[in-house]
Design a binder for these strands. Structure first.
Lengths: 257, 257
DNA sequence: TGTTTTATGATTGACTTCAGTCATAAAAGG
DNA sequence: CCTTTTATGACTGAAGTCAATCATAAAACA
């Protein structure tokens, strides 16, 4: 028999929530958990799948776990080749038996991936980015330290005064930073808070390298990070001729990839 | 025909990696991607599932995106009802506009779940457990702070001197702790390092509550946490008559759930 | 080199899942 | 209050999935 609409919606909501906890929910379990027939369970699953809230599988469903890092994953696929090339270049700057710092952001995340596939060991990694930490956790010879702080759900990073203070516990050999934008004047990022944290990391680091793909050049962003004169190393896929037009003075060390 | 062992392992590795990118991989796709027969695809899937590196589904497989919580999830299903009841009891001790500390461990994780479904707001949560942080991240009115520290992959917790020091940034109203074992003398946990961190948390907390399901009683573990005389509040599913036999003196406040 | 082990693909029958159809009863809507 | 809409569960044939068995050819091992 027909059932009130709000109940249907509530049930599907519940199903979606349930699915976020279980990696896989067979249709039979859906039936028993929701106390509905198989047919209705299927219909609910189909409805949620149509809204892209879950991923349907044969015999059940899976929560779309990419949803969690949704915006992150999306950005990660943009300019993927460029980012991977930059990551490969940046990886050459990583020496065994050192401590590196990994900033948040997709370009630096690509470096974490590169290090996971071709580890430089032994290595100590300090980061405030959960994706980076999780990428490198469990890699033989790599020790991961997460800075503490306020957990920002959307970006999966840790920020705030505690995060900055936590950096004081570590001495960093090379800090790898990303940024949102770059123009003639220098490098920019999305928020003051992020920039503030980056600047603390820079202070604690003996060396630093900026990883910027070509798409970042020619724009600005709300918060100013650093003038070109203060940039030690730049890793980018932008050709040198272009870089000379878009930045000055160009950094001491530039890796074109 | 038989194929070199290292090729088999490499292929399974590739399959596991593939699975981490796709939320769901039907068996047919596995066949075409790996260029193997359905039978072999099934065998590979079964092998990876046995190693708990993936989650098998009917008709395919899913990457175990909770892999990092693998052992965690397993333990979580044990005595689930008891833990949920304890969590519901512990939740009553949570007041709005306070700061609570959540220990690692499955019983306390159940409290995090309970708080996610029935939030007490506004609330500040300090924790060194990634599962707890991710459970509560994004809940309206709940601010999550993660302590920094050494990222222990297997347990998904942050430990070490940095984690202890990070606790100094916070004032905690109630600390919710779990433990591995409890006997006449008091409460025990698995390692000295964990106990050390718990004791720092206890020092920083104005009040504390110990969450212990009945299965924990009557055993010991390698590291001693606290004598019964020092326990302020105990939340347990063990009946009072049993508790009197297994602990003395019994804590001032005991919640039987 | 000769023997043993085993990874593979094909086949099979039992079992499961699926989309579609239909009757029904209750909600929605006028 | 009456009509229309629709959420549900039962049923169905078709299609998909599975574990087990077996022959084979190549790797592993001595």
């Amino acid at each position: 028999m027909k059932v009130p609409l709000h109940l249907v919606e509530a049930r599907r909501q519940q199903l979606a929530a349930l699915l976020q906890q279980r990696s896989y929910l067979p249709i039979q379990e859906v039936c028993s958990l929701l106390q509905v027939s198989e047919a209705t369970a299927r219909r609910d699953l189909r409805a949620l799948a149509r809204e892209k809230r879950i991923v349907r599988t044969f015999g059940g469903a899976v929560s779309d776990f990419n949803q969690r890092f949704a915006s992150f994953r999306e950005r990660q696929t943009q300019f993927r080749d460029a980012k991977n090339r930059i990551a490969a270049g940046a990886r050459q700057l990583v020496q065994p038996s050192t401590t590196i710092y990994l900033d948040a952001g997709t370009t630096v995340a690509a470096l974490a991936e590169a290090l996971r596939h071709k580890p430089v060991t032994p290595l100590r990694v300090v980061t405030h980015s959960l994706p980076a930490a999780e990428t490198l956790a469990g890699v033989e010879g790599v020790t991961v330290f997460l800075t503490g702080g306020h957990f920002l759900n959307r970006q999966s990073i840790l920020l705030g005064p505690e995060a900055g203070k936590a950096l004081a516990f570590y001495t960093i050999d090379v800090a790898f930073l990303g940024a949102e934008a770059a123009d003639k004047n220098g490098v920019w990022n999305s928020t003051e808070e992020v920039v503030h944290h980056q600047q603390i990391a820079l202070k604690r680091a003996r060396h630093h390298a900026l990883c910027l793909d070509a798409s970042k050049f020619g724009h600005t962003a709300p918060a100013f990070l650093k003038a070109w004169s203060g940039v030690e190393t730049l890793v980018t896929d932008l050709p040198e001729t272009e870089l000379l037009k878009l930045a000055s003075p160009i950094p001491k060390q530039v890796l074109h990839t």
